[in-house]
Design a protein around this nucleic acid. Structure first.
Lengths: 189, 189
DNA sequence: TCCTTGATGTCAGTAACTGTCAACACTACG
DNA sequence: CGTAGTGTTGACAGTTACTGACATCAAGGA
C-alpha cells in the first residue's frame, strides 16, 4: 500500500459530493474532483468505474445489509415479510447515518437524470440479490422476483420521502407502514 | 421538410439494431450507425438525445398505451386492477408487434449494462405516469406510487420472460397470471 | 421569383474514459 | 542491509460520445 495520503477513495467521495452540491453534477469535471482530493483524473477512474459511481459509494454495504436481514428472517415468514426483515436492517443502517448527508446526497441525485438512472440500476441490483435469497428459501419464480420488486419498491418510496424531507418520522416506521399499504392494495380495499 | 431520403429516424433505428445485434452495443460507434443509414453522426444526435436512445424508439407509445388503458379502467376497479387494465393495453400492443424483433431488441439490451440501466429509467417514467393517473382517480400517496411500482414490476417480470424466450405463451396471459401471483404473495400464502 | 422553414452537412471543441509505462513507497525475504 | 516484489499513483496519448455554430439545400408559400 504505497500511500502518499490516506483514504484517497474517501477523499474523492467527499470532494465530489461537495462540488456536486455546489454546482450540480454536470457542471463538475472529473479532473476537478480529483484535483480537490489532491489526486489526478486517472486516479479517479482507478477508484470509480465512472463519474456517477463516486456518489454511490456505500451501496454495496446497503445491499449486504438487506441480504443479511433477509437471511435472518424466521422460516415461518411469508416472502414479503421476509423481504420486510431485510428492509428493516437496511433502514436501521441508514438511520444510524448522518441524515443531513443523506439529504444532501439525495438532493444531488434527484437533480440529475443520469444519477437517477444509476440509482434505479442499483435498486435493480438489490432486487436481483433479494430474489436470489428468496429462491434459496424455496420461493419459485416469478414469485421470488415479484416479491423482491414489490418490496424494493416499498423501500424506494419510503426512502424518497425520508431523504426528500417530506416526512420526518423514523425510516423503519415508514417502511413498515408502506409495506402494510401494499398488502391493503393487493387485498383490494 | 427538406428530405433527401425519407424516414431518417427509422433508418437510424434499423441500422443501430442490426449493428448492435452483430457486434454488441459498445463495439459500434454512433458514426458507424449514421453511415449505415446514409447520414452523418451529427444528424444521429439530432434525432436521438444519446446513443442509447436509438434503441428505445417506441417507448413513448408504450407509455401512452398504458396510460390510455388505465384511464379506461372501470371506476369500480381497485388501484391494482386499474393498473392491470393499463398493462393489458400495453401487452396487446407488444403482442401485435413482430416478436422476433422484440426478442432481438431484448437480447441486445440484456447484453449491455448501460442499456439495462436506460430500460429501468424508462420503466421509472412509466411508474411516474401511472402514479399520476392513479392520483387523478383519487388514490392517495404513497399508495398510488406503490401500486404503480408493483404493477410495473409485474409487467417487467412478464416481459422479461416473454421477450427472453423462456415462456412462449401470450403476453397478456402472463401479465394477468403474474398479477394474480402478486396478490397471493401479499395475502401471505 | 424570393423568402421562409426544416433537415442536413461540416467543422471545431469539450469531457468522459482507457491503455501503457514509469515512478515511488512500502513489505518481505534473504 | 539490500533487493525483489506489490500496490498506488502520475504522466501522456488516444478514442469516442456529445455540443455549438454556421453554411447548404430542397420544398412550399407569398
Amino acid at each position: 500500500m504505497g500511500r502518499w495520503q490516506p483514504d484517497s477513495r474517501g477523499r474523492l467521495q467527499e470532494a465530489a459530493l461537495a462540488l456536486f452540491a455546489e454546482r450540480g453534477f454536470d457542471q463538475v469535471t472529473t479532473a476537478e474532483i480529483a484535483a480537490r482530493a489532491g489526486l489526478t483524473e486517472r486516479t479517479f477512474f482507478r477508484h470509480f468505474a465512472d463519474k456517477r459511481e463516486v456518489i454511490f459509494g456505500g451501496s454495496d454495504l446497503l445491499k449486504e445489509q438487506i441480504v443479511a436481514g433477509l437471511a435472518g428472517a424466521p422460516a415461518s415468514a411469508d416472502p414479503l415479510e421476509a423481504v420486510a426483515c431485510g428492509l428493516d436492517a437496511a433502514a436501521d443502517m441508514l438511520g444510524a447515518f448522518r441524515r443531513d448527508l443523506s439529504r444532501q446526497r439525495h438532493a444531488v441525485i434527484a437533480a440529475n437524470p443520469e444519477l437517477r438512472e444509476r440509482e434505479l440500476a442499483k435498486a435493480g441490483d438489490y432486487v436481483a440479490a433479494v430474489a436470489a435469497v428468496l429462491r434459496q428459501r424455496g420461493v419459485a419464480e416469478p414469485q421470488a422476483t415479484i416479491a423482491a420488486e414489490a418490496g424494493l419498491a416499498v423501500f424506494r418510496v419510503s426512502l424518497e420521502r425520508w431523504a426528500g424531507g417530506e416526512d420526518d418520522r423514523d425510516l423503519t416506521v415508514m417502511v413498515r407502514e408502506a409495506m402494510a399499504g401494499l398488502r391493503e392494495l393487493a387485498a383490494g380495499t
